[in-house]
């Protein structure tokens, strides 16, 4: 654990010394504040639109931070050749990988807290209540969803040679899962075999990232999820991330470093 924590501390230090996070936070703040300052269509429910847009920006920003941070970790180590002095220390490749994962996940978690704090302040300013339970649940689910995304991006960084191609592929895959993946089984019902079987199988194979999206509940002030489904989703995230990390470790341990 000592080695994993040491590697993760470097990843976190990198994140707060780079400007990506600050730029995304400032952009989200600016866009939300500008939208909040105009009273479109004299709609009294404008605060819901504002919350919806702010949450969408938070989701996009968090995915950008998580994917770009994790996708560059190992390729950057190889490109700058720091992987050699690092692995010449008494540390295994699996520990390096887990350290990278933990660092990216914790860094994304800190970024999420900042984003959701801003969101909380904005919605509290426009609405009288502050449903802390719902917000905490949303942040937690969002953070655990990012664990799966980070594990996928780390695996991708070991499979695809260039970080840029890995970034693009990860964004497409994650966006595809979030937008289409959750509806695949419904689409499959109206299809003939074998397409129906293939699509259904794909639905069950793809990580169910949609389970972690509780934006609607926040926007419409619905009550939080029950404890059972909430913890089931968290456990699902840990298991899925572990599967991708196991695959990444397998690839990394067989990768020739030259």
């Amino acid at each position: 654990m000592n080695n994993i924590l040491a590697v993760s501390s470097v990843v976190m230090r990198e994140m707060y010394r780079r400007k990506d996070f600050y730029v995304l936070l400032i952009l989200t703040v600016l866009i939300t504040l500008i939208l909040g300052s105009v009273n479109l269509f004299n709609d009294s429910n404008i605060v819901r639109y504002l919350k919806e847009i702010c949450l969408l920006l938070i989701w996009i920003s968090s995915l950008v931070i998580a994917i770009t941070t994790s996708a560059r970790q190992i390729p950057a180590e190889r490109e700058s050749r720091t992987i050699f002095p690092l692995l010449a220390k008494p540390v295994s490749r699996t520990e390096v990988l887990l350290g990278k994962f933990l660092g990216c996940w914790l860094a994304s978690g800190i970024a999420l807290v900042c984003f959701y704090l801003f969101f909380g302040i904005i919605s509290a300013a426009r609405e009288s209540g502050w449903p802390l339970g719902s917000y905490l649940q949303a942040v937690t689910l969002h953070w655990f969803m990012l664990a799966i995304v980070i594990a996928i991006a780390l695996l991708g960084s070991l499979v695809f040679a260039a970080p840029s191609s890995n970034n693009t592929i990860c964004f497409i895959v994650i966006a595809g899962i979030l937008l289409i993946g959750r509806h695949l089984h419904k689409v499959a019902v109206g299809m003939e075999q074998p397409s129906r079987g293939i699509l259904t199988l794909l639905y069950f194979l793809l990580p169910q990232l949609g389970w972690f999206d509780v934006r609607e509940r926040i926007t419409h002030n619905w009550p939080p999820l029950d404890v059972g489904p909430f913890f089931l989703a968290l456990a699902y995230a840990l298991v899925t991330a572990s599967v991708f990390l196991f695959a990444a470790s397998w690839v990394f341990n067989r990768k020739r470093l030259q």
Partner: peptide
């Protein structure tokens, strides 16, 4: 590797 030190050729250490 516990008692070993290694200096690789042309390495750019974590610049941050």
């Amino acid at each position: 590797r516990q008692r070993l030190g290694y200096l690789p050729e042309l390495t750019y250490y974590y610049k941050f």
